[in-house]
């Protein structure tokens, strides 16, 4: 099989040799000038198209995409920074408000305590005065009552003795008897 192919190959080479002068087509120097000429033209045009049309276009597309992604990322970063700032501001405001509330509560408590203390002191002073007045009043009444007890007791005793014996005792006896009884 291979032998047949080789024979046919040889025949073809012989035929080609008759046509071009050299057997194996890639080594046929008579075609070199034409191939080089057309390669130079086509590859030259290809290079020009690649360099000036196709590649700048692809580069532009890739550049746009890169810029867009970079832009989106920086926008996201900016928004994140804004959010962080807002959170920080909120927390600061919250802390301030808390401090303020604390201060207000403290002040109010102090004021109320002072007022209360003052009122209580005033009330205590008034009560003390009233107590003293009442004690003085009581002492007065007591003294008066005690001074009248002797007289009432003398009168009562004299009346009782008169009923018992029909005759009023003398003032001197009465006083003596009262004194001994009251002691």
């Amino acid at each position: 099989m291979a032998g047949e192919t080789t024979t046919e190959g040889h025949a073809a080479i012989a035929e080609a040799a008759g046509e071009h002068g050299v057997g194996f087509p890639p080594f046929d120097a008579t075609t070199f000038a034409s191939q080089l000429f057309w390669l130079a033209i086509t590859f030259g045009i290809f290079y020009w198209i690649m360099k000036n049309v196709a590649m700048p276009r692809i580069a532009g597309i890739l550049e746009d995409r890169k810029d867009r992604i970079a832009g989106d990322l920086s926008e996201a970063n900016r928004l994140k920074a804004e959010t962080d700032a807002a959170i920080a501001a909120y927390e600061q405001a919250l802390a301030e408000a808390r401090n303020k509330a604390h201060g207000i509560a403290h002040d109010t408590r102090a004021k109320l305590k002072a007022e209360q203390d003052a009122r209580r002191e005033k009330a205590e002073t008034e009560l003390g005065e009233k107590l003293k007045a009442a004690e003085a009043h009581i002492t007065g009444i007591k003294t008066e009552a005690l001074s009248q007890i002797e007289e009432i007791a003398g009168d009562t005793t004299s009346a009782l003795v008169e009923q018992l014996i029909g005759k009023a005792p003398t003032k001197t006896d009465l006083n003596k008897a009262l004194k001994s009884a009251m002691n």
Binding site: T5, E8, G9, A11, A12, I13, A16, F24, P25, P26, D28, T31, S34, Q35
Partner: peptide
């Protein structure tokens, strides 16, 4: 012929 394809 395997060489024929290379002919110019």
């Amino acid at each position: 012929d395997p060489i024929h394809q290379f002919q110019i």
